[in-house]
Amino acid sequence: MISLTRLSGTAFLLNADLIERVDCTPDTVVTLVDGTKYLVSESLGEVLESVVRYRASIVAYSALPEAATLPTLRPGPVRASRLAAVPPAVHLPIDRGGTP
């Protein structure tokens, strides 16, 4: 969740995963995937920074050793994070169905 401020000055939390786009017209308009629109006092850059920080915090939090010991909502053992860097892509020739 990211914290934003309505033009009236009231703060609210918004699920950043539901943001479809952010427009600056000149007020900042946050549009969600369901079409809901919010006019916020933060600039386009501030909204972007909030979303980037939110997503980075999720990745950073999942890499913490103590994150593996947190309770879960589903029964069963808690597994440690298995985040890893993705190796570079291997470029193989594409078979286009021609003659060898």
Rank of each mutant, 00 (worst) to 15 (best):
M1H: 11
M1T: 07
M1P: 06
I2S: 03
I2K: 00
I2P: 03
I2E: 02
I2D: 02
S3P: 03
S3R: 09
S3Y: 03
R6D: 06
L7I: 14
S8F: 00
S8N: 15
G9Q: 01
G9P: 02
G9T: 02
A11C: 03
F12T: 03
F12Y: 09
L13C: 03
L14I: 06
L14G: 00
L14K: 00
L14M: 01
N15Y: 07
N15E: 14
L18S: 13
E20Y: 13
E20S: 15
E20C: 03
R21S: 14
R21K: 15
D23Q: 14
D27N: 07
T28R: 02
T31V: 10
L32W: 00
L32I: 00
V33A: 14
V33H: 10
D34K: 07
D34F: 01
G35D: 12
T36K: 08
Y38N: 05
L39T: 10
S41C: 06
E42G: 14
S43F: 08
S43H: 09
L44A: 11
G45R: 13
G45Q: 14
G45I: 09
G45D: 15
E46F: 10
V47D: 04
V47C: 06
L48I: 13
E49V: 07
V52Q: 12
V52D: 11
V52R: 10
V52H: 04
R53Q: 14
Y54P: 02
Y54G: 06
R55D: 06
R55I: 01
S57A: 11
Y61T: 13
Y61D: 15
S62F: 00
S62M: 11
S62H: 07
S62A: 13
A63V: 07
P65T: 11
P65L: 07
E66G: 01
A67I: 01
A68E: 01
A68P: 01
A68S: 05
T69M: 15
P71E: 04
T72F: 03
R74P: 00
R74V: 03
P77D: 12
V78H: 02
R79N: 14
R79F: 14
A80M: 00
A80P: 06
A80R: 02
A80K: 02
S81W: 05
R82S: 10
A84K: 08
A84G: 04
A84W: 05
A85M: 10
A85E: 12
A85F: 09
V86E: 13
V86D: 13
V86R: 08
P87S: 04
P88H: 04
A89S: 08
H91G: 02
H91S: 11
H91C: 07
L92D: 08
L92Q: 08
P93G: 05
P93M: 04
I94Q: 01
I94R: 08
D95T: 01
D95M: 02
G97P: 07
G97F: 08
G98S: 12
P100L: 10
P100W: 08
